[in-house]
C-alpha cells in the first residue's frame, strides 16, 4: 500500500424532506468533516434525495453487540401492556 494514511470512513445520514428524520444512507471516505459533507452531498444527493445531511466519523459510533440480543431486546417482547391492543374496549367505542 502506497498511501501513508487513508481517508477515514464516515457514515452519512440524510433527511429527505423536512418533517422526516435523518436516515442512514451509507458511508464514504473523506479526510475531514467539510470534505465528508461535500462528498456526501455529491455522492448521496445527486438525485435530489435530501434537504439536510449529517456525517459522523464511523469510529465514533458505538453499536450494541448482536450477542447481547437476548438481554437487550427479548425482555421487551412480552410487555404487551405497552400496546393499545392489550386493553379491552366495548364494541360501541369505535375510536380510542
Amino acid at each position: 500500500m502506497t498511501t501513508k494514511k487513508n481517508w477515514p470512513l464516515w457514515e452519512v445520514f440524510v433527511r429527505s424532506k423536512n418533517g422526516l428524520e435523518h436516515r442512514h444512507f451509507g458511508s464514504l471516505h473523506a479526510a475531514d468533516e467539510e470534505m465528508a459533507l461535500e462528498n456526501a452531498r455529491d455522492v448521496y444527493t445527486r438525485r435530489n434525495e435530501g434537504v439536510s445531511i449529517w456525517v459522523v466519523e464511523s469510529k465514533h459510533i458505538t453499536a450494541s453487540n448482536p450477542e447481547n440480543y437476548g438481554e437487550l431486546f427479548e425482555p421487551a417482547q412480552d410487555k404487551v401492556y405497552r400496546h393499545p391492543t392489550f386493553y379491552d374496549l366495548p364494541d360501541e367505542v369505535k375510536h380510542m
Partner: peptide, 11 residues
C-alpha cells in the same frame, strides 16, 4: 484522485 473526488468533479 479518489472515487469521491471523481464524483464531485463530474458534478
Amino acid at each position: 484522485p479518489s472515487l469521491e473526488t471523481d464524483i464531485a468533479c463530474t458534478n
